[in-house]
Design a protein around this nucleic acid. Sequence first.
RNA 1: CAGGUCAACCGGGUGAUCGCUCCUCUGCCUGUUCAGAGGGGAGGAAAGUCCGCACUCCACAGGGCGCGGUGCUGGCUAACGGCCAGGCGGGGUAACCCGAUGGCAAGUGCAACAGAGAGGUGUAUUGCCCCAUGCCGACGUUGGCAUGGGGUGAGGGUGAAACGGCGGUGUAAGAGACCACCGGCGCGGGCAGUGAUGUUCGCGGCCAGGCAAACCCCACCGGGAGCAAGGCCAAGCAGGUACAUUGGGGCGGCCCGUCCCGCAAAAAGUACCGGGUGUGCUGCUUGACUCCAUCCGGCAACGGGUGGAGCAGAUAGAUGAUCGCCCCUUCUUCGGAAGGACAGAAUGCGGCUUACAGGUGGCCUGGAUA
RNA 2: UGGGGAGUCGCCAAGUGGAAAGGCAUCGGACUUUGGAUCCGACAUUCGAAGGUUCGAAUCCUUCCUCCCCAG
Length: 115
Amino acid sequence: MQRRFRLRHPADFAHLRRDGRTYRHRLLVVSYAPNGLSYNRYGFITVKRLGNAVTRNRVRRLLREAVRLLHPRLRAGYDVVFIARDGLVGQPLGVVQRILNELAVQAGLNESEAA
RNA sequence: CAGGUCAACCGGGUGAUCGCUCCUCUGCCUGUUCAGAGGGGAGGAAAGUCCGCACUCCACAGGGCGCGGUGCUGGCUAACGGCCAGGCGGGGUAACCCGAUGGCAAGUGCAACAGAGAGGUGUAUUGCCCCAUGCCGACGUUGGCAUGGGGUGAGGGUGAAACGGCGGUGUAAGAGACCACCGGCGCGGGCAGUGAUGUUCGCGGCCAGGCAAACCCCACCGGGAGCAAGGCCAAGCAGGUACAUUGGGGCGGCCCGUCCCGCAAAAAGUACCGGGUGUGCUGCUUGACUCCAUCCGGCAACGGGUGGAGCAGAUAGAUGAUCGCCCCUUCUUCGGAAGGACAGAAUGCGGCUUACAGGUGGCCUGGAUA
RNA sequence: UGGGGAGUCGCCAAGUGGAAAGGCAUCGGACUUUGGAUCCGACAUUCGAAGGUUCGAAUCCUUCCUCCCCAG
């Protein structure tokens, strides 16, 4: 994922924490808000309770890969933050993709549904 | 083959597709953000942050006191609390391992409970011995018991620890009271060694206990803070206080010493406090570097020379995902299935410590076979 | 990343080399018709863990684990 598509500033995260709409799944939390740009930006949060640096990196990379594959089918113009919960550790890519898709539909971020 | 020990060794391989980041080159629609090509992209511990350096700022990094650290000897190193070699002590049949291993005959302090006594010229519960008195037994110039006085520290007992050991002389009983030997101590000397130390001779006095990871003494080392150090550029806000001679401030404990500013309205200046923007660029990765081959010095750690090869730089933080084949392990209904440790660079480097599936190698001991 | 601090019963905690105080909570009993209050009693052999120093360690030393705070 290229740098321009990442959320990079603490202020962005604080903004989503305050004004974002949030949807929860057992293994994942997604929060989003319009950003006024022509493209989406994504952020990933893997808190320390998930495990050591290796497991956190693993979870974050799987999430990033799933988002990369899903990205073309999402509506543009939003900042989106994904927060991994405990059960996501050790799940394969397929499961992560399925959960992500469910949440996207639920949140109304899916392109087809919006059109 | 089994058990042990050491660490100098490895830490899955390969291919395809889709991605991320950095560098170089090329292109033009000149982009902090495009396109194409080529190349680089986690570890032995990257970890814990327990030490040591480099580097940066505090003017310089000076002296004394204080504080902190280290602690057998010699060497290596940029330095170290690390490494190598050696001494001493301890463990093991051995290979080998462990040790904060200077000083308690400088001073001060500590030792609960138990015990008569726990540190000085100190102690007497039981015991042993002598004397006196009384009673009893015997009548063999002697015995027992009780009380009192005295001698004694060998035996018993307490304790983690009780003032050398063994044998003799001696004595009423005993005692380094005396003697020989042994252990240990002090002083002086010889020999071996750079030294720690070992060994040996003479003299002395008979023993001077334990704890310094107790204060402390001695020797050596250390100025403080840390890359969120520090520097540059944007944007932006809100200022306030102190400063007049014996002044204010810095060198983050204090003093000396030294440096900077100021020496008379205000302004400016210096310092401090407060408010505010922002992680945009830099520092930022090639250096006491790593590996291989070889030569020289050294027991070794290591040092020096020559030749060759290699070396990531992210910044909500890249180094990934999926699939196939091979390798290893476990389970198996023999079709196959599941799994492959510990763990992720954040200024760099040298160590230490801790975690770790599986595999490789050297050495020691025991057994078996030839 | 760097700097600093703390772990003692279920909770709050004292103890800084000689047999781990106290309060709250919990459990049992007494009092009461019952409950509350009150009174009496019980409750730490692993002081975060492992080694070491010492005759003796919660305390001193070393290493490790967990948690908290500060610096943009």
